[in-house]
Design a protein around this nucleic acid. Structure first.
Length: 217
DNA sequence: CCATTAATAGGCG
DNA sequence: CGCCTATTAATGG
């Protein structure tokens, strides 16, 4: 299935590293572990697993979630190819407190905290790039929170669909998540999500075909 | 096939 | 809207 994988190519896929010079990337290579394979549904990270590094999705996708008091999942975010997760772990002692589960067969590359800290000290450009990335993530999170608080279920769903359309570059969007996961991500129940889909269809705003949704407005 | 999980439907607070 | 239950669809072995 997989052809060739070079550490440099892998690093370049990660938004965080994409803009670095080749020399910079070569500095990163030695501290990375490449192409660990996780079958669909397996846990890539979980609390107390002792993994302290950050990871990059080389291929595949994964969901980040934790469990609330009632033992139910709350989806914190979705990782797609090239996304970074666990940057926090590079700066603090504790290991992960969230679960990360592969949504498809997924390959990740990773590095541990200590090696990366040393590299950061030696490579200011990397530190700056990373800080900017943090900023972007912060903006996204704040925006998501604002949406969750201000919009009702229908509005949240529509907003999410438009985001997906933007990400995927088409109005015929493919839902990567199971609907119950999408519901969790939106902070609503699966039942409510199902109802909102029906309502939006009736209003001629979307067309649902299994896991694909056409956005009509 | 059967068993489990996901999605939907309907009732109710 | 969330929670609950029942039914059906989809999935995986």
């Amino acid at each position: 299935m997989d052809k060739k994988h070079t550490p440099i190519a892998c690093i370049s896929k990660a938004a965080l590293f994409a803009d670095l010079s080749k020399a910079m990337k070569e500095k990163i290579v030695p501290i990375t572990t490449h192409q660990q394979y996780f079958p669909k549904g397996s846990l890539i990270r979980q609390p107390l697993d002792g993994k302290d590094g950050m990871l990059v999705i080389d291929r595949g996708s994964a969901k980040v979630y934790n469990l609330n008091e009632d033992g139910k999942e709350t989806i914190l975010g979705i990782l797609n190819q090239g996304d970074i997760e666990g940057q926090q772990n590079l700066f603090k002692q504790e290991s992960n407190e969230n679960f990360i589960q592969a949504l498809q067969d997924t390959w990740i590359c990773s590095m541990n905290r200590r090696d990366f800290q040393n590299l950061l000290k030696a490579t200011p450009e990397l530190a700056v790039t990373m800080l900017n990335d943090f900023g972007k993530k912060l903006v996204t999170i704040e925006r998501d929170m604002a949406i969750r608080k201000s919009l009702d279920a229908k509005g949240r769903l529509m907003a999410r669909l438009h985001d997906l359309a933007k990400d995927q570059g088409t109005n015929y969007v493919t839902l990567l998540l199971k609907k119950k996961d999408l519901a969790s991500y939106l902070g609503i129940t699966p039942e409510t999500l199902s109802r909102q889909f029906k309502i939006l269809e009736k209003e001629k705003k979307i067309e649902v075909h299994g896991k694909r949704v056409k956005i009509l407005e």
